[in-house]
Nucleic acid binder design. Sequence first.
DNA 1: GTGCCTCGAGTTCC
DNA 2: CTCGAGGCAC
Length: 750
Amino acid sequence: MSNTISVQELTEDQAREELARLATLLLRANDLYHTKDAPEISDAEYDSLKRRNIEIEARFPKLKRDDSPSEHVGARPADGFAKVSHAVRMMSLGNAFDDEDVADFDRSIRKYLGLSNEAPLSFTAEPKIDGLSLSLRYENGELVQAATRGDGEVGENVTANALTVADIPRRIKNAPDILEVRGEVYMSHEDFDKLNERQVEAGGKTFANPRNAAAGSLRQLDSEITRARPLRFFAYAWGELSEPLAETQMGAIQRLKAFGFQTNELTRLCETTSQMLDHYRDIEAQRSTLGYDIDGVVYKVDDLALQSRLGFRSTTPRWAIAHKFPAELAWTRLEAIDIQVGRTGALSPVARLHPVTVGGVVVSNATLHNEDYIAGRDAKGGEIRGGKDFRIGDWVQVYRAGDVIPKLADVDLSKRPEDAVPYEFPTKCPECDSDAIREDGDAVRRCTGGLICPAQAVEKLKHFVSRKAFDIEGLGAKQIEMFYDDPVLPIKTPADIFTLQDRDAGSVSRLKNRDGWGDTSANNLFTAIQEKRTIPLVRLLFALGIRHVGEVGARDLALYYRGWDAMARAVDLARPAALAQRAADEAEEAERNAAQAEGRRSRLKDVRDAAIASHDVPTEAATAWSDLISIDGIGATLGLSLSDAFANKDERKAFDELRAYLEITPPDAPSSDSPVAGKTVVFTGTLEKMTRAEAKARAEALGAKVSGSVSAKTDLLVAGPGAGSKAKKAADLGIETLDEDGWLQLIGDA
DNA sequence: GTGCCTCGAGTTCC
DNA sequence: CTCGAGGCAC
């Protein structure tokens, strides 16, 4: 590619030859991409060939071939599989890295259940297979769907491929009407080696490790290719069931085995933590002779009734944990430290490494977190790695945290070059040269440039179009970078996205005439943008990228205010109270420091009160502010951040301009027949039949507003055991109070 | 004030 | 996946 002639200089004969060559290359690449696992050229090369083809055709229109790739070669499909949502979420597991973590696991379960240290509590222990998880749904004994984990909520439908795996039965006898079997798809070492030999003979690419081979094989669009790959499957869990499988984990595994699934022979029942650890060491000793990759041991509470009492945290069950084997380590040279600027202005240092293989993958970058981490300090000023810092030129030890994210573990001081100097963290933004400052007590240094900083502006836009925000098809991170700097059709603000089509219509260089674009792709983009002019309030709030407002914060705000204008009014109204809050926080901080320096005690509350009193706050402002920060999960920090964003002239202008193009839809209307619809509910104490998150989600689904604190506006308090001041306050205010069972009865979930 | 638990924001490689 | 920090209960 390096000595290709520029399009302008091509003769007609050369152009004809070149078009023929490109047609062959592109059509072949496209075919390989769709049918084989090993594309011969990278996406970038593919794009550049395609662009060249279009350029030549534009200059010599009459040479355009009948089989022109510009007509026949579409964009590569982003995703070839249908999405399926899991009836029961596929969770990941919490991790234990040493014996102490395992002991903590046992302790925290006992504490949660109120069991003494002597009470019997059994766990299963089984090898953690290093493959990819799969959920198999059987209806009336027939396999109807196989889905990958995906993000846990929504996976991909790979049923046709699963049907080719010998360990996966198509039919099961005497099964419950609905049975979702979950387990791990993997490839044995022997089969992996043979597959790679075959790949070498066929001139294809080899796989880095069995897990990649298994993942690549299961995600084939052509299931005949999957059939030729020797995949295996271990069953170890379940999702939706029409009837319980057993009373214990062990019993359920035996049922799965009886249904005809492969289950792992090394699964044991352990009565004590020391038995669990013994089995862990036993499995670790056998690791190299098992014939398949494992990355640890999984412990699960055996009693399924206890499992259900323990329930789930947001992403992991409380009743299971993965005890990981020590991560593989490798030494390499730290060649450079680069600084990236994120959407909030955070300066993140990234280590550029001499490429090194760690756990079957070549690593050349690793995260360095923040300036303290480089310097060998932790957040509180204590030492990490014995206080050793990282310097450019150092020999450093790399591992992949959780077998994924590359990190630096250690540095070899004996190999430090003599001229190596401590890394000086920049105090100016490398992208816009604004001051980069660290707030008191913060670990990160942030660029103060705001939207002036191109890096922040671009990252904010990328966030705006990301999957959980506006999710505009054909407008991803790459396109945002391109449009941001576009001299003719720039996208500098979210509103610019929605004016793109109109601006394009009047533009001298229409999008459809550009390299890599055509009529279809331009129209597809405009349609995709049009579709997102109707947007749920939650997505809009998340998309704005206001600091501290993430997925959950956005949802909480949307459910409370139910409309953009209502929220904007409330936030505007609350502004004086927000400012008073900040003044009080600052006064308190200053007083605390002064008191400490002078060695006296002080009445912080008086200082706060004085600060607030000096800020003439209208009653309506105080009420609006207190409503905002009493939303369950929303505190003063988020409230201030939200208030600041709305009060900032530039940001507010961007919001208002954007607002004009959108139709904002409220969260799903609450079911009006529920007795709690429209009520403000507060949960307090320990909930035993549901987690707080579940309780909150359920209440909100029924149209209730969930608040974190009791006030005169509270309609109902749900108090579990251990409820304290809130129950008392509710009683004082004469607010109706229910226990957990009473609540479940009220909402009809008893 | 301390100690969970979650959330937000950052990151890599395929 | 991990860290830091926000929010909340005790």
